[in-house]
Structure formats: structure tokens, C-alpha cells
Write a protein that binds this DNA or RNA. Structure first.
Lengths: 325, 325
DNA sequence: ATGAAAGCGCTAACAT
DNA sequence: ATGTTAGCGCTTTCAT
């Protein structure tokens, strides 16, 4: 209908939507005008069918086998995922691709996706084996977001080291010069190492008291409890933690000891979790910008699928949380 | 390929997947066997194209215009949405329909969905005008979840009144007989009314001190502050709030006054929000079972779209939160 | 730069 | 209960 209304062939209409440059401006405009008049929206199913692909891009959640520490076991994880989802949709909606969501834990799960999807945006890849598993699927893919060091894979990564620096700056701005840093699982969890390294580079290793006991509220509580006297003497004058929940525990320990969070002792977490509304104190934090990361990832995948040149990797900077809790 | 491998026609293969009952068990099994062997997965695009529909079901988030109180403005809302999404996907994945996500605030937004989707699962409908707007779109739909009283619309609802009763029972079990109930916006927000009514019916209206000042942490704090002397005297011996965040504020007020939450004064919220991990006390709560609600809604819509008989409405019971915070 | 035409995998109407 | 067949809307070769 659009073709006849604009006096061109259906092939030209198709070209207008898929490769506008190959059609003369004159005909292109005629097509757009007719399309607008008729309320024409290209049919994604037909497109996919003819392209002989599924017409579907999958946002793949990589399910982790039981491991020592994994944040997605927190129900709060869902909040993060929802942000990512929205960002990816922003990119896929105007494209010829429909967005699918899936979870996979192993090669078998990935195999099932084979005929069903044209490409993968892989959420929360943080082990080399996962990256390899995905690559082995044979499907086009982009991995995110703790993937900065996975050279050789198309990826979109957060810069945890930069985040550690930002965290340090947050404390410095509050007047801190000799902070404690609470973390854990440094061997197993690369992002934890990166964050710490960034933090140390900004403060100078000698200024920082590293407390490597555990993550979570209770661990944070204990860690801070253990340095109350140093905090009171001023030997330590601020606390950073590898994530918000650990920082929260530290906050309770401070409160318990009669120290006012932020006022007496600046306290910074990481992740910019949304439970601030329920907390009895505010928290400084770092936002890894999940939406930015996966928006980029989606764009990269789309470029690859449509044959446009695309960069192999991209690093997205985190930012200091602008909404104090 | 499946057709020839199993010695039937392609039409029969199609029937096996869309209307298994109309095919003899013998041929049906032959088809399944061949399909498994060949790793056959029906092509949703082709199906949709031929069906002359989009092959897409949309989970529609109803965006509210600025209003006095709306919980989805909380970032915690995303946690809830992620649960719903997962439940709906469980139902749509094995179907011939692909799941889409969209947001709409008005008739224009809905109009844009017209050619793009075959049916709507409408998330978080809580005004009659919204229900009417959706019905006017002409698309098949199911509305959820504060929709119990919207007779005349296909819907899947939570029972807020039953939730109020459950909340009361939670307090009773903790020994409470004369609770305070903190709420607000009773005129504008029907679910708030329903919850209160359920609560009152379980306790008896005379036993309950209703505090209608506001919702949110600060409002909860103030409300509880105002009854500290009654709590200490035993005139009031428990607190319920219309939601968890308000309850949290009340919890801080109790703590502030030297009263131990749950131990001295049982405290119940509503919604089973996931920030318990960060709180310095536990909270009783009611879970409206969002996954259950929208799983049902998706099934109902699918039944309608595929011409199977379907019930017009369904009420899903909430449950007392099994994971104390 | 543009058109003609084939065909992607499926479903539904029709025939048996 | 099952097969035959047309055609959904689009993309892509192949011509021109």
C-alpha cells in the first residue's frame, strides 16, 4: 500500500527503511509521506521471516552456579536489572528487532537459544569461562559489565577502578585523609580488586586501612566496630566499603558508637542501591550506570547485526551518586 | 522437515503445536519425536505473519500522571516490576507469542501499540479511567492488580482486604490486641481503604487507633512518635502501616524511644519490600504475590487470544511474608 | 537508483 | 483426522 501510494515498488519501500542512503531523496520523502499518512509500521515478523533470522535480540542473564559471593542472589538485584532492561529496550524498540529475555547457566541453555535469537546481550558476565561459553554458542554477542579485562571479546564494561577513585574523591571532599576500606573476596572477585586499587591509587596505599573480612551488613558492622577507637581518636577518619550493603552495616556500627554518619565520619558505599529511603542515615555511593552500559551494548550488537562497522569494546564510566540516600 | 521426517503434512505439524487435541496421539508423538531429533522450534515470526497478527503480547506499564501519592515513583518499584516480568515470561515463552514491554500514559500511547501487539497485560491499573482507556483501545486486555472492584473488565486482582486481615493476624499472633494503624490518602487510594477495612474487620473497629497523616518514612516516624506514651502505657500494643516504608519510619520512632521493634511492639508493613537486608530491625509484612497475579493474567490473555474459554476475572490472595526482614 | 519476482515458515480454509 | 494449497509482509537477488 505504501509502495503504490508513493509510486514506487515495494522493494524501494523496504530500502527506505533498511538502507535509506541507497534511495534517492525524492523517492525517500515520497515514501515517508505516504507511510505517515497511512500510519504504516513495518512488520517485524515479516522482516524477520524473510531475513531468515528470528528478528530477536536476547538480553541474557547469566545465571551463576553457587559461588562464594554473588550479588544477584539479593532481591535488590532486580532493581538493577529493571534499569538495564529499560535501557536496552530504548535501543531495540526503534530497530527491526524484538527484545527477548532469557536466563542461561550453561552451554545447553545457550544451545536452546540458537534458532530463537539473532544475537545476545549478556548481562553481568564476570568470569572468563562465562565469556568463553557465550562465544562458543556461535551467536553474535556483547558481554557486560565487569568485563574490562576480557580482551578479545566484544564487550561493554564498567570501570571499577575509576569507580574506586570516585569513591575516594567523595571521601576526600568530606575531609577524609586516612580512610578504612572494607572489602572481601579479593582473590575471587575481580571487581572488588579493581575498586580497591582505584581507591588506593587515589589515597596512597599507606593512608588506607584495608579490612578484608567479608561483605554484607553484618560484616560491615563488625568491621566498623573493630575500628571505633581509631575513628574516635582520628587515626582513621572515614570509611569506604566495596558495596552499599556493607557500608550500611558500618553505618549502624557508627551510630551504635555514638558517631554521626557523614557528619562525624564520612561513609561511602558502591552501587547506589535504592534502599536509601528506608535507611536512618545517608550514604555516599558510586553508580556504575547500568543503563549507560547496556544501552551501549545494545547499540554495538545492533551495529554488528546490521553489518555496520562497530567498535570491539567500550568502557563506561561510573559516576558519584547524585542522590544522597 | 519435521513433517516429512514424521510422515505427516506440514499442516498436521502446525496442529500439533497449536491444537494438539485435534491430532491423533499416534501422529502427535511421531511429530514430537521428529521435532526433538531435529531440534525443531516453531518460528514465531512466521506464525505471527501468517496469523496476520503481530504475534506479540505487551506487558503494559500504566504511567500515572502526577498524583498525590504514587508508589511507582519509588525506585524500589522496579524490584516489583522485575518479579512481574519474570512471571509473565514464564507463560508467554512456551506460547507462540513473543513478549513486549511498553509504557503508556494516555490514549495516544495506546494507539501506537495498535498494530504492534495482539493483546495487553496491563500492570498496576488502579483507576477506573485507566481501565476505560485501555478498553477503548480495542485491543484484547487483562488489567491487574488493584482491580478487584472494577467489575465489567477482564482482570486479575489482589485482595487488599484479605491482606489487611492477614496483617491483623500477624499482629495478633504477636500478642497485639489494640493496634494503631498508620495510613493516608484513604479517599484517593482505594487499596489503602481496602487494607484498612480488612484490618478493622479482623480487630474490631473499636480496638484500632487509626492515624491518617501520611505515608512514607517521615510520616510513619511522626505518627509513631505521636503515640509513644500510649505504647509505653500499653494502651496501644502494636503498629500496622499501609506499607513497608511507612512502617520503617515507625520502627525508627520506636527505636528512638527505647522500644524494641517486634520484641516490645509488633510492627507490620505491607508489600514485602526487599530492603530488609539494610534495616536495623525486622518487619512483618504482606506480600501481594505479584508473580501469581500476573502469571494468571498472562494465562487469561493467552486463553482469550487463542479462542479458548477463559474466566472473566480472578482474585489472587496475598500471603504473610515468610521471610522476615 | 529502481523494479520484478521468489520465497522465508507458518496457518487456515477447504477438501477429503 | 488429515492433506493441499494460498498467501501473510517483507527482503534480496537479479535485471535493467
Amino acid at each position: 500500500m505504501v509502495a503504490s501510494a508513493s509510486g514506487v515498488s515495494s522493494a524501494t519501500v523496504s530500502r527506505v527503511y533498511n538502507n535509506p542512503g541507497s534511495v534517492s531523496a525524492e523517492k525517500r520523502n515520497a515514501v515517508f509521506k505516504a507511510a505517515a499518512k497511512l500510519g504504516y509500521i513495518p512488520n517485524k515478523s515479516a522482516s524477520a521471516l524473510r531475513r531468515n533470522g528470528s528478528g530477536i535480540i536476547t538480553l541474557l542473564e547469566i545465571k551463576k552456579e553457587k559461588r562464594e559471593y554473588y550479588w544477584a542472589e539479593l532481591s535488590l538485584f532486580k532493581w538493577f536489572y529493571a534499569d538495564v532492561l529499560k535501557a536496552v529496550k530504548e535501543v531495540t524498540d526503534p530497530s527491526m528487532f524484538q527484545l527477548n529475555l532469557a536466563t542461561a547457566a550453561n552451554a545447553e541453555d545457550l544451545g536452546k537459544l540458537k534458532g530463537t535469537t539473532d544475537g545476545l546481550i549478556c548481562f553481568d558476565v564476570d568470569r572468563m569461562e562465562e565469556a568463553e561459553l557465550i562465544a562458543d554458542s556461535g551467536l553474535p554477542f556483547i558481554i557486560g559489565h565487569h568485563t574490562k579485562n576480557y580482551t578479545g571479546f566484544p564487550r561493554c564494561s564498567t570501570d571499577n577502578e575509576a569507580g574506586g577513585v570516585l569513591q575516594a574523591e567523595l571521601l576526600k571532599k568530606a575531609g577524609c585523609t586516612r580512610p578504612a576500606y572494607i572489602t572481601a573476596h579479593l582473590d575471587a572477585v575481580e571487581p572488588h580488586r579493581d575498586r580497591l586499587n582505584g581507591f588506593l591509587s587515589a589515597f596512597g596505599r599507606e593512608q588506607v586501612t584495608i579490612i578484608e573480612t567479608g561483605v554484607g551488613r553484618d560484616a560491615g558492622f563488625k568491621a566498623a566496630k573493630g575500628i571505633i577507637s581509631e575513628l574516635k581518636s582520628g587515626r582513621i577518619d572515614g570509611i569506604a566499603a566495596v558495596n552499599d550493603i556493607t557500608a550500611t552495616g558500618a553505618g549502624y556500627a557508627l551510630t551504635d558508637a555514638g558517631l554521626k554518619v557523614q557528619t562525624d565520619i564520612p561513609l561511602a558505599g558502591y552501587d547506589n542501591m535504592p534502599f536509601g529511603i528506608a535507611l536512618p542515615f545517608s550514604l555516599l555511593s558510586i553508580d556504575i550506570n547500568p543503563a549507560g552500559i547496556y544501552r551501549s551494548a545494545a547499540k554495538m550488537l545492533l551495529e554488528e547485526l546490521t553489518g555496520k562497522a562497530s567498535q570491539a569494546s567500550r568502557i563506561i564510566s561510573p559516576f558519584a551518586a547524585s542522590n544522597p540516600f
